[in-house]
Design a protein around this nucleic acid. Structure first.
Lengths: 149, 149
DNA sequence: GTCGTGTACTTGACTGGTCAACCATATCAG
DNA sequence: CTGATATGGTTGACCAGTCAAGTACACGAC
């Protein structure tokens, strides 16, 4: 492995370790909300009817279905989501964002946005954003799907 | 947040979730060695005298000292490292790579190298490596140190 | 010297996830 | 229709880490 490649792997390792912790720590400190739960709420808020199946949610969170179950249980206990039996498939469950959950997300959103700027986006110019997106996208895509999840 | 920025954050999130799992899964499958333990051995192999203090090792693994303690205990049970009381500071412990540990690392190394190529480096050309290294480096550096660790 | 404070590490309790076994329902072959 | 198999989700057992309290030693003030 060339020195350049080694430097890249180290920089990548640092980002992989440091960025998610920083984003999570920011959000917990400012909003008392773990990043995983924030992402779950954020995903539901984007969907039609503010509702999703467990497997979609799990995929979106890069988690196993059982991990998603645990997360949803926590959110349910907080009153931020409700679970309903799927109307179209009796085995499945729909997770539905409650008003309280939406409210919670609205309150947390500016804080996460600021955190993302400070921790990531502010360090990059426009060209870098473009190139990084492409490069990270191609790394991410050739790894994913059935092999990892 | 602009669409470009949002796309970047998503690409980054994917890489952050997917790359370390893929590298870990590869190494466990091929070598039956968790990535964390591999990194610990690899770091020790680079040091003078194949020896480091717990706090150095913890920092290198982006872990708390207590996390490092657990890792070292596992490696010790496998016979890959030994712990000695530090000669210069009676509170501290030196972690020393054993011959068996070095051997284990040598056997695992080609496998990890191949995995890193396949999962990351192969997807990037020379320019991208350069730009990514710089960009990830600046993201990583402005986040680190005392605030997260 | 010894006392107080600081530092290096370990340990018990906990957290947030995984994996594998399981239950309930769906779907398909006959 | 019925039985066999596949799928969606939950659950118990576990795992790899964190955090906070504790232990042992170091070091500076006196």
């Amino acid at each position: 492995m060339s020195p350049e490649e080694k430097a890249l792997m180290q920089a990548l390792a640092r980002v992989i370790n440091v960025v998610p912790r920083a984003l999570d720590a920011d959000l917990r400190r400012d909003q008392d909300l773990p990043l995983t739960e924030y992402f779950a709420l954020a995903y539901l808020a984007e969907t039609d009817g503010h509702r999703a199946r467990m497997n979609e949610l799990a995929a979106r969170l890069w988690m196993t279905i059982s991990g998603a179950t645990r997360t949803v249980i926590r959110l349910e206990q907080l009153g931020f989501v409700a679970r309903e039996r799927s109307a179209t498939d009796g085995r499945g469950a729909d997770v539905v964002l409650t008003d309280k959950g939406l409210e919670r997300l609205r309150r947390a959103w500016p804080s996460h946005l600021q955190s993302a700027r400070r921790r990531v986006l502010d360090h990059l110019d426009e060209d870098e954003v473009r190139i990084l997106t492409r490069a990270l996208g191609s790394i991410g895509s050739n790894v994913d799907d059935a092999e990892v999840c």
